[in-house]
């Protein structure tokens, strides 16, 4: 009897914690475009899925790509998306029956020489994943290594949103949220497209800060990043998906300033891709893109394209892919 009471108290506690957590999640967890991205990923068929970092998000426009290639594609890149995240995105698409024909991995060396930081975007994709084996695998391999608060309190990195709780609540009850609308993601700096592309707009403060990129030094490759790039290649091979890796252009000045780091990274990724049988395009070293690397075309020194030039780049890249028979695919 005594034990029964104890277990009843425990059950009550558990229910209380779950209840408070769901309430807080609802009130604090914001509506993000990652929710829309993942919704498209698991509910529609795509020929091509773009995965990668913020450079890909702002540099690869699926609408332009599709108009050249006559395909349907989606941009699933995200700032803070590491190879481990990209791998699970592709795996989720396969698991939910929306296997693509082609995956284009936007390869940013910075994500291979650092570890995922447990900041606000650490679990953002994980949170939007529907219950699935892939989500469980994702939890096991990424979230489990992180702070226990990521799992026990899914809202905790957004506790600062307490001051805009009214906004979040009204947004979550709106039709737009239910229909995966995108109008609320537009602001003077950028427009989110339902294809997943982010169009960056010119701002007066652009390029005011010269941020130093995380650089390849020859001995700082993160084992985890390399492992998941390999797994991505294996997954694509197993599933019969064509995998292409691309490094989008970075302003000429930046590459010149850190020329040895960029050249070293290029060498490393060229060798790795060759080993894995993946076609790799490093647009910083391809003649066709040399006129698209003027600093004026970018938001910052780090190399995020303005929308207009992203379209130009995507068009040229798509044409190149379409007509390039010299590359062998596995």
């Amino acid at each position: 009897m005594r034990n029964f009471k104890r277990f009843a108290v425990l059950a009550f506690l558990l229910a209380l914690v779950i209840g408070v957590n769901s309430l807080l999640s609802f009130a604090l967890y914001p509506y993000t475009y990652s929710r829309v991205d993942i919704h498209h990923l698991i509910s529609e068929d795509h020929d091509t899925i773009f995965v990668g970092s913020s450079h890909g998000k702002c540099g690869l426009n699926p609408e332009v790509f599709d108009s050249v290639c006559g395909t349907v594609s989606t941009n699933q890149c995200l700032g803070g998306e590491y190879p481990i995240d990209a791998y699970h995105i592709v795996r989720l698409a396969c698991e939910t029956g929306h296997k693509p024909k082609q995956v284009i991995y936007e390869l940013d060396a910075g994500y291979f020489v650092s570890e995922p930081n447990e900041g606000a975007d650490f679990a953002i994709l994980y949170q939007e994943f529907p219950a699935s084996f892939t989500k469980f695998h994702y939890w096991m391999t990424k979230i489990l290594d992180g702070d226990f608060r990521n799992t026990l309190f899914p809202w905790y990195l957004y506790r600062g949103k307490i001051f805009s709780v009214n906004n979040t609540l009204s947004q979550k009850r709106s039709e737009e949220y239910k229909d995966f609308g995108i109008s609320s993601f537009a602001n003077p700096a950028q427009i989110y497209h339902s294809s997943g592309f982010i169009e960056r707009l010119v701002q007066p403060a652009d390029k005011s800060v010269k941020d130093i990129p995380v650089l390849y030094t020859g001995d700082n490759i993160s084992p985890e990043s390399e492992i998941y790039f390999r797994r991505l290649a294996q997954l694509c091979e197993r599933e019969g998906i064509r995998l292409i890796a691309v490094t989008t252009p970075v302003p000429e000045v930046t590459v010149q300033e850190y020329s040895s780091a960029y050249a070293g990274a290029n060498q490393y990724f060229t060798a790795l891709s060759k080993e894995l049988g993946v076609a790799y395009y490093n647009c910083n070293y391809i003649e066709e893109f040399s006129d698209l690397r003027d600093l004026n075309y970018f938001v910052d020194y780090d190399g995020h394209y303005y929308g207009e030039y992203a379209d130009l780049f995507t068009e040229r890249f798509a044409k190149m892919l379409d007509f390039d028979d010299s590359v062998t695919y596995n």
């Binding site: 506690l13 209380l16 930081n117 447990e118 650490f122 992180g146 608060r149 309190f153």
Partner: peptide, 19 residues
């Protein structure tokens, strides 16, 4: 229980993330 719950929820509400 109130004390435990207060301590428990203080961790995500008041603590710094490890980043």
């Amino acid at each position: 229980l109130a004390v435990y719950l207060a301590l428990f929820f203080a961790l995500p509400c008041l603590g710094q993330p490890p980043s």
